[in-house]
Amino acid sequence: MIDSILATAAQIVAGSTVRWAGCAPSEEQRIYIANHSSHLDFIVLWSYLPPWLRRRTRPVAARDYWARDVIRRYLAARVFNAVLIDRAASPGTPAGQLGRQAVDQMIEALGDQHSLILFPEGTRGSGDEVAPFRSGLFHLCRAKPQVAVVPVYLENLNRILPKGHLLPVPILSRITFGTPLRLQPDETKDAFLQRARESVRALKAAA
């Protein structure tokens, strides 16, 4: 109930044109990777998935943002079924260990039927350029090589709600789903991350 109201609201605000250019909505396990430029990104991407797909797709989000108050904690846990990960190193935790923890959490969250929404840039960018991807995506794919990685390009969401603003301007946006890719057996980390990033950027040019 709350999830469909929220999804409709997100769709009204974002007014997206959705193109499944490289694949169709499917029950197969996937990791949707998208560019990140606005707080709206995951809610809007999630809202434009068909309802049956929405229920089995879990957004990966930052704990420091989504655990900040009661409403956000409720939404993250009950509505989005989000996977909250720590990104800021708390004192005494080495960064590497934090990364491993996050990857373990994502592997567990995938289980054998869920899909994930992931922003591999790790943080919001300006919207002009897609930043280099963090290595978590590679480790996740190495542990789950059968899961398809679907590149997604989100356009104009940073114009609807730029960094540092609270109220959205109703500009029309666009969501493009690209062709799924998978980690090749002998592919290096850098090559894979570069290939994944290019697959997202290519959708911008095509859009």
């Binding site: 104009n156 940073n158 114009r159 730029p162 960094k163 500009i171 029309l172």
Partner: peptide, 8 residues
């Protein structure tokens, strides 16, 4: 507005 190049 969607079509014009606005800035943040």
């Amino acid at each position: 507005i969607t079509l014009i190049p606005t800035r943040p």
